[in-house]
């Protein structure tokens, strides 16, 4: 074994780490300055302050879907603290969080992590950055248009809308027929009487832009 190799490697790595440290520092400062307004919006909408997180990782330890995420929940909190907003909004994590709130029940800093995730999804949805959560986008849109026209959910109509939208025409169709036979799906939509009131709520929502 050549001794010099080790020091070479060390030296090389040190230089790399040094550079990485430098880069990160610059990025963080810039990112924070750029994204302060976003963090303010997040705090206001969720009522939660990711700044409170001290990285104990209890949230991640108890998260049943951490194995499906690109960044575990504690890392999302850290990224928020560092202003890495685009990365957070583009993450798969926010779409594969099931909102089970195990993290929220356990966080020693009292942060409702699930609520943060939820708010991030809403913001991503409103900004249109839903590439990784595309199916959810289709689901929500189909759902809300069903409620708009009937006042209630029309399950078959919804399922059709989703399957067409996601181009997975046969997803869960193995469940459809048994559900029909057990009287759990109806062919016709349930409607409420006062659809006018629902219309008023939708119109008003459009008017105030919410």
């Amino acid at each position: 074994m050549k001794e010099s190799n080790v020091s070479k490697v060390l030296h090389k790595n040190n230089a790399f780490l040094e550079k990485k440290r430098e880069m990160k520092e610059i990025n963080v400062t810039q990112a924070l300055a750029k994204n302060n307004a976003f963090l303010e919006e997040l705090r206001e909408k969720s009522g939660q302050d990711p700044g409170q997180c001290f990285q104990c990782m209890k949230c991640t330890g108890g998260c049943p879907f951490q194995f499906t995420m690109d960044y575990p929940p504690n890392q999302i909190m850290r990224m928020l603290q560092n202003g890495l907003i685009d990365e957070v909004l583009d993450s798969y994590t926010i779409w594969t969080c099931a909102t089970c709130a195990t993290c929220s029940a356990r966080c020693p800093r009292g942060i409702d992590v699930a609520k943060v995730m939820d708010t991030l999804r809403v913001i991503a949805y409103q900004k249109g950055t839903t590439v990784k959560g595309r199916n959810m986008h289709i689901f929500h849109t189909a759902f809300m248009s069903s409620v708009k026209s009937h006042g209630r959910l029309y399950e078959i109509g919804l399922a059709l809308g989703i399957n067409i939208g996601t181009r997975k025409l046969i997803q869960d169709t193995d469940l459809g027929l048994p559900m029909l036979l057990k009287g759990k799906l109806s062919f016709l939509p349930h409607k409420i009487k006062d659809k006018g009131e629902i219309r008023k709520l939708y119109d008003y929502a459009r008017k105030i832009g919410e």
Binding site: D118, V147, L201
Partner: peptide
């Protein structure tokens, strides 16, 4: 009487007012 769908997770993913109003 004449209840409507509460909007569940869809209303609040798409906007604030309906998620409350429904």
């Amino acid at each position: 009487p004449d209840w409507n769908c509460c909007g569940a997770s869809s209303a609040h993913s798409t906007g604030h007012f309906l998620s409350f109003a429904l």
